[in-house]
Design a protein around this nucleic acid. Structure first.
Length: 515
RNA sequence: GGCGGCGUAGCCAAGUGGUAAGGCAAGGGUCUGCAAAACCCUCAUUCACCGGUUCGACUCCGGUCGCCGCCUCCA
């Protein structure tokens, strides 16, 4: 049973979907007036991982993430730059897709609706609110009457009286009450505008999320997500607008913690932001994912180069474990394999532990801990086999490797291409085709078997230039066997120059692409 | 002032009634022709502080201190 922390009840609850076997998630996406920063990526990643996990658990999931492409800030930017609002929105929508896309295409939401394509639904919602007395028109704008909704404040736990005290005076003379908020704004000259029963105007404040959530997921949908900072007023208002109109809104509210920089929330207004694209220029996407997921999504997360570096070291260790497993499965060694009961047991335990932690409010940090624990067992087993001069149990290694990869896969943390393609190759049980100038070459292993060392020596440099280190490895192993260190080192230099790192194992030279 | 959250080793971070996962860093050792990777050992008698409940609390209750978020656009 999956349990999720619901901000509405401030407790973990069993996840009982509205419709059996299905789950609908709405997550607040960006207002496209600027480049996204690393903080914006946290909910994007969090809810993509939630979707991933729900799918692993057999749910058919729809993840909807809006793009707000009409808004005061966009209009202000357009006006400052002498462009149209639509041009600004288009530019930053494209940039948003570019930047988030680099995190991995499998993270993309299933639906990314635009506010400007949801105008009829928005107008409809406003009309319903006016008809039921929950909203009123003033000078072409429509305001939500906060005091008409008795449950107002149920998410943020704010009492209307308390809000009243702290409320800043809004320069909007048509309001009955300072707490009331616009659901529809009358257009000023030059602003983007659509027809409505109240004249030309545009969506106000936060109504687009109500309209899009209800449009794509329907009343009473399962999960609504976003950053903690949106609880008030954004999410509170979404609830009020929707439910006052007679449409039950989201049942479970999930909020991710803020990314901080210098101990403060990362925010454009604070000026301590790091753009996602800057971070991705320096760190690979799976490293950034690891950085996010080694902390529980509800906790605050400090941004720093040190933390990214640590995430890289952590990620590299996991990759190394998979590499080691892959290599040893292909080169198990001779003789009786070392018994692997403990490794089998560890793999099974890690799988169970991983699932249990993920079920428990998406505890990715603890789940990842299970994966690390299994990696350790895997290394330990290989080291024990080497120490005993024994072969390895390829089945056990494969089981452990699969568990690690399955965990990373569920967390959307990708393996480097070189590692996943090695796994694919093994799965296909195929031999790598070796061709030089369209002439098929025998695999290195066969040349070595037939003791054709001159051929290997002749070809290995050329093969390295094609990114194939198998000839070089076979040759170096031969030299090492003869204790011809000078020749062996010469081949090693060539391998390294071709961009590989070497690992010596009892079963010969293992190469891994550098970087 | 109101609402919410947090405080666990040098750093990061799980745990939340049964005696402290995991990662990084550091030191020592093993393996190794060299190198890399890996392994082993060490690294919180203790979970901000003070009381209380309990056979037993990091975990529950009360209080204190410190930090953060929201109350205004904000992921």
């Amino acid at each position: 049973m999956i349990r999720l922390y619901n901000s509405l009840t401030q407790a973990k609850e069993d996840f009982v979907p509205r419709e059996e076997g299905k789950a609908g998630i709405y997550c607040c996406g960006p207002t496209v007036y600027n480049l996204v920063h690393i903080g914006n990526a946290r909910p994007y990643v969090t809810f993509a991982v939630l979707r991933s996990w729900l799918r692993h658990r057999g749910y058919a999931v729809a993840l909807v993430e809006n793009i707000t492409d009409v808004d005061d800030k966009i209009i202000a930017k357009a006006s400052a730059e002498g462009r149209t609002s639509a041009e600004v929105a288009a530019e930053y929508t494209a940039a948003y897709h570019d930047d988030m896309g680099r995190l991995g295409l499998e993270l993309r939401p299933d639906v990314e609706p635009l506010a400007t394509e949801t105008i009829p639904e928005i107008v409809d919602l406003c009309r319903r609110l006016v008809a039921t007395g929950h909203a009123y028109e003033a000078d072409g704008s429509v305001y939500f009457r906060v005091r008409s909704f008795p449950e107002y404040g149920k998410l943020s736990r704010q009492r209307i009286e308390d809000l009243e005290e702290g409320a800043r005076v809004e320069g909007e003379p048509g309001k009955e009450d300072p707490l009331d908020f616009a659901v529809w704004k009358a257009a000023k000259p030059g602003e983007p505008a659509w027809e409505s029963p109240w004249g030309m105007g545009r969506p106000g404040w936060h109504i687009e999320c109500s309209a899009m959530g209800l449009r794509y997921l329907g009343a009473g949908f399962d999960v609504h997500g976003g950053g903690r900072d949106l609880i008030f007023p954004h999410h509170e208002n979404e609830i009020a607008q929707s439910e006052a109109a007679g449409l039950p809104f989201a049942r479970i509210w999930m909020h991710n913690g803020m990314i901080r920089s210098g101990g403060e929330k990362m925010a454009k207004s604070v000026g301590n932001i790091f753009l996602l694209r800057e971070v991705l220029d320096r760190y690979a996407p799976p490293v950034v994912l690891t950085y996010f997921l080694t902390t529980h999504y509800r906790s605050p997360l400090e941004f720093s180069v040190d933390k990214l570096d640590e995430a890289k070291a952590a990620y590299d260790r996991l990759v190394e474990a998979v590499r080691t497993a892959s290599f040893r499965i292909d080169h198990p060694g001779d003789g009786e394999p070392l018994r692997a009961d403990e490794l089998h047991a560890a793999a099974a335990a890690a799988r169970d532990g991983f699932a249990a932690h993920m079920d428990d409010d998406l505890n990715t940090a603890a789940a990842l801990g299970e994966v690390f624990g299994l990696a350790r067992e895997l290394f330990r087993y290989v080291a024990a086999a080497d120490a005993a001069g024994a072969a390895v149990d390829a089945d056990a290694l494969e089981e452990a490797e699969d568990a690690i990869v399955a965990g990373l896969d569920a967390l959307l943390i990708a393996l480097p291409d070189s590692v996943s393609s090695a796994r694919d190759l093994r799965a296909a049980k195929g031999e790598q085709a070796c061709t030089t100038e369209n002439v098929a070459l025998p695999p290195a292993a066969r040349l070595a078997e037939e003791a054709r060392w001159d051929d290997l020596a002749l070809l290995y440099v050329e093969r390295l230039n094609c990114g194939d280190a198998t000839y070089a490895c076979a040759l170096r192993d031969r030299y090492r066997g003869e204790k011809d260190w000078a020749s062996a080192d010469k081949v090693r230099d060539a391998i390294q120059a071709a961009g590989f790192e070497l690992r010596d194992t009892p079963q010969g030279t293992q190469v891994v692409p550098r970087g």
